[in-house]
């Protein structure tokens, strides 16, 4: 086995591992959505502001998984190691 194919195989493997970063953001977004549902249940008249606050929070929580996606794409398509 030459070095190049070893690096390529390991890059593909690590790109798969990078997508695990979605785990944390999925958990965080789920908690945010659950809390928002609780808040709407308690205060139905504040539904619109709760919804927009939750969407912004969920988008910020999503950033880390997007970083994982970008790293996975760099490893697959523009690999700096090869």
């Amino acid at each position: 086995m030459d070095g190049r194919s070893f690096i390529l195989g390991m890059s593909a493997l690590s790109a798969g591992i990078c997508t695990l970063s979605g785990l944390g953001s999925g958990l965080g977004q789920g908690i945010a959505a659950g809390k928002a549902a609780e808040a709407v249940g308690r205060q139905p008249e504040a539904r619109n502001s709760i919804l927009s606050t939750m969407l912004v929070g969920a988008a910020v929580a999503e950033t880390c998984s997007v970083y994982g996606l970008v790293i996975a794409l760099i490893l697959l398509m523009a690999n700096p190691l090869v």
């Binding site: 999503e62 950033t63 997007v66 970083y67 970008v70 794409l73």
Partner: peptide, 16 residues
């Protein structure tokens, strides 16, 4: 950086 990558990553994920 996070503003740029958030928009880019979300849309590119959809495209892929």
């Amino acid at each position: 950086v996070s503003l740029a990558f958030r928009l880019f990553g979300n849309i590119l994920g959809g495209v892929i």
